[in-house]
Design a protein around this nucleic acid. Structure first.
Lengths: 250, 250
DNA sequence: CGGCAAGTTGAGCCAGGTCAACTCCGGTGG
DNA sequence: CCACCGGAGTTGACCTGGCTCAACTTGCCG
């Protein structure tokens, strides 16, 4: 009965919604499952060092995983975070400065066998395109994040972050509510600010009438267009703009 | 005579040094060449808007290409730059906020045919691995850049940038000289600072005895270990550290 | 040698960092 | 059930690193 998915997979979010495992042939899924294992982390826990060397490919099933970098004097930053559906290939991590993977909430991920993964990459174009696209999107998100960090003011950064949460995390967009899955401290480290400034910026957005801070982890967007404008430095949209022609300084 | 490379390719940097085109079979190279074209840009010029939609895959042969994002009020940032050997696939650029590609110096690149490129990706594992690795490295560089922007002081950012130039640009490392291929203004936009602050930071590194500013575009590194330490927030190395275990805040 | 853009230097200012006190809230034990 | 506790978040007061603006110097190209 190769056509039935392994029981673990049948209940996994990655098996649905055009995610990675949904694109695998039954035998590919069975092989991958047999050589992989599911790992859970509590908030604040870090991926154990040894496991990465052994199986450096992760598929996030649930929760938010962050990539943290720490300087010698203790300054810490969160360079990126991963959500359900993200595929993380760490095989070049030790040739590059990388950091640590820390759970921002309770996380479940699947530790994929590199051999089985590579075999799928070799043969299954559909799966390959998913992984490629996932990595490309990661690059684009990083670029946006760089733009946020490089030259935006505190409330602009926060507005941008709220919209990123809105776009990347599930949740009903129509209600106007966005879940902020991290603590203030983590938001601060992601945006390169202090927790105090995050708090003041939430207040700021609230007094401008853009959002309503319902709880520490839920905001309601009151004025989406203006929030977008603010997030983009008063630019007029935040949807894809692609390559836009801009006047070049001589 | 399918075994002779096309004349244009035989003189191209990408055909050597384990670069992308060096990994192609003769017929693959011939096909790709026939469907591609070489483009040159002067410093400050932007990639013409239309060309990207038509052939959104670039291979940089010479010079430095930058990815710029501009906010409505004119604030500009350079999110990344590309050097010889980099492969840029822009096919998802319009679904993501992207920006503009602007030449920071005189640039030559090859505008690859997506069809020919995809066929190579499909069949040639060696070439696929190069492109994958190139993209992965881009991700890691972005992450480092994010860490720089998020929580480093001005001189630390500049030290980090000098080391990035040292690592990515050709040049004789042994002489201790590093070429800064951009203008001060561009460095400032890359590091999220003002040109004045860049200038002051160069002076700062000089008075600390870490570098010697020989010309606007050449610095000599006087004390590499300390420069690395500074670049890493007084951490003790800048070579790959891979995943490191760090104490997690409870 | 002159003209212009790039880069540097100086003076003053402000956004956001820092430090400390306070509030809020969930968990725990009497 | 309530008092207590500890960690997260917020608020306020103050301070400083880097931004701003303006003047000056340097370097490049005719």
């Amino acid at each position: 009965m190769a056509s039935l998915p392994p029981p673990r997979c049948a209940a996994c979010a990655l098996f649905f919604d055009e995610n990675f495992c949904a694109r695998l042939a039954p035998d590919e899924l069975a092989n991958l499952n047999a050589a992989s294992r599911v790992v859970s982390l509590r908030r604040g826990e870090q991926i154990p060092a040894g496991t990465i060397e052994l199986s450096p490919i992760l598929a996030v099933e649930r929760g938010e995983l962050s990539l943290q970098q720490v300087l010698h004097d203790g300054r810490r930053s969160i360079s990126a975070f991963f959500v359900c559906g993200d595929i993380i290939d760490l095989r070049q991590a030790d040739e590059n400065r990388f950091g640590s993977l820390v759970a921002l909430s309770d996380v479940t991920f699947c530790n994929l066998s590199p051999q089985a993964f590579d075999m799928i990459m070799e043969r299954n174009q559909n799966a390959r395109e998913f992984v490629w696209s996932n990595l490309q999107n990661r690059v684009y998100r990083s670029l946006n994040h760089i733009s946020d960090l490089a030259n935006k003011k505190a409330p602009e950064k926060l507005a941008s972050f709220i919209l990123e949460c809105r776009n990347r995390l599930p949740g009903r967009k129509s209600s106007g509510r966005v879940t902020i899955p991290f603590r203030r401290r983590d938001v601060a480290e992601y945006l390169g600010m202090q927790p105090e400034t995050i708090s003041r910026s939430f207040r700021d957005l609230e007094t401008r009438g853009l959002i309503d801070v319902e709880t520490t982890s839920v905001v309601r967007i009151c004025n989406l267009p203006d929030l977008r404008m603010l997030a983009n430095g008063a630019r007029d949209d935040d949807t894809g703009i692609g390559l836009r022609v801009l006047r070049v300084s001589a």
